[in-house]
Amino acid sequence: MPQPVLDLTASSIDITRALCDIPSESGHEGQIADAVEAAVRQAEHLEVIRDGDTVIARTHLGRDQRVVLAGHLDTVPIAGNVPSHVETIDDREYLWGRGSVDMKAGVAVQLKLAVELSAPLVDVTWIWYDHEEVAAELNSLGRIARTRPELLAGDFAILGEPTSAQVEGGCNGSLRVELRAFGTRAHSGRAWVGENAIHKLAPALAVLADYQPKTIDVDGLAYREGLNAVGITGGIAGNVIPDEGMIHVNYRFAPDKTVDEALEHVRDLFPDMEITVVDRAESARPGLDAPLAQQFLAAVGGQAKPKYGWTDVARFSALGVPAVNYGPGDPLKAHTDDERCATDEIRACETGLRHWLLGE
């Protein structure tokens, strides 16, 4: 297959389409990373660094402050929604295709501005990275934070996650655990000989069903939490009393607590269950009190909102870099079979970022 070529002189909408038409499911980002690297290397004002399937481009203009703008290149699996196309619904134009919302439209805007803006008011580090849509330990930003943290350094960071072109501060954290109950295996015809582990899961399921998630104010933004069963397993055959049962639980917690505090809350709710941590990701406070954040919010307009889903703003927050989410696309359309991004939001994000970076 010939290597795709990205024309970054095209409109941000056309660049989005080109990106969507390059399959890049998590673990298969090499081709799109090659295309991005080749395109940004043509800009003489950028230093370009390749780290695995992550591409980093930086200005070195001697500015007093540096901002980081980042976006992930990978998508969830394609579901018959590639190649992309443009369609109008109720007089509003949408770009359809896997990744159009999460988050190739945001990446397209960043790529266009990266090559066009040779003299922004701040130095800029642009990062396009791999393995965001999978377990946190595979995320390349995490790898770079461990091995080359200087590449993530900055005074403020913006993630191009879908926010319908509105600023969303911080993010909820995410904790996934497995709750296990144990019993004694027996023939189901003589069930009284055994002890049914699946039945022992009932109290935990009742706790989950009755749980009332909190809405917690953090620095003026209201973060809604959630605690839910997302999977359940148990049993080996239709005539065997199961000796083990498991509930997979996901806790989305507000940025008023650490992931360790979130785990302690889960342990308090299920004191009699064996708990195994599957995945953990820290939350991030809003980051809107930083002067650069205030300037950015004023430049793009609107009122900041909380980010309910986890994003990589948490990685920057952990490094002491205040970070927000800002990108085109309705997050409710992320990962859906009819994933589509309103083209006016792509234009709005490009305009907002351009004005802010140039001080217009």
Results as ranks from 00 to 15, higher is better:
301 G>W: 04
319 L>M: 15
319 L>H: 08
274 E>C: 00
273 M>K: 07
325 N>W: 01
227 L>E: 02
355 H>Q: 14
222 A>Q: 11
353 L>Q: 08
269 L>T: 05
125 T>P: 08
71 G>N: 05
131 H>V: 05
271 P>G: 03
260 D>Y: 10
316 F>I: 05
206 A>I: 10
305 K>A: 12
260 D>R: 15
309 G>H: 10
312 D>M: 03
342 A>M: 14
39 A>L: 04
202 A>E: 07
314 A>W: 04
16 T>L: 11
230 V>M: 05
18 A>N: 08
254 A>E: 05
296 F>Q: 03
189 G>Q: 10
252 R>H: 06
303 Q>R: 13
174 S>C: 14
320 G>N: 13
273 M>D: 11
261 E>M: 09
267 R>M: 12
278 V>G: 04
25 E>H: 03
170 G>L: 04
135 A>W: 11
47 E>L: 07
300 V>Y: 04
300 V>N: 09
335 H>N: 10
137 E>C: 03
32 I>K: 10
247 I>R: 04
289 D>A: 15
336 T>W: 06
192 W>F: 13
314 A>S: 15
96 W>H: 15
219 D>F: 01
90 D>Y: 00
285 R>W: 09
126 W>D: 01
83 P>I: 08
219 D>W: 06
125 T>S: 12
284 A>V: 06
261 E>H: 11
122 V>M: 14
112 K>L: 03
211 Y>D: 11
274 E>I: 08
346 I>Q: 03
52 G>L: 06
34 D>W: 00
268 D>Y: 01
120 P>E: 08
259 V>T: 10
221 L>S: 07
24 S>V: 00
3 Q>Y: 06
312 D>F: 06
280 R>H: 11
60 H>Q: 15
224 R>T: 12
309 G>I: 06
199 H>V: 08
119 A>Y: 01
27 G>N: 07
304 A>Y: 05
120 P>Q: 09
145 A>W: 06
245 G>P: 02
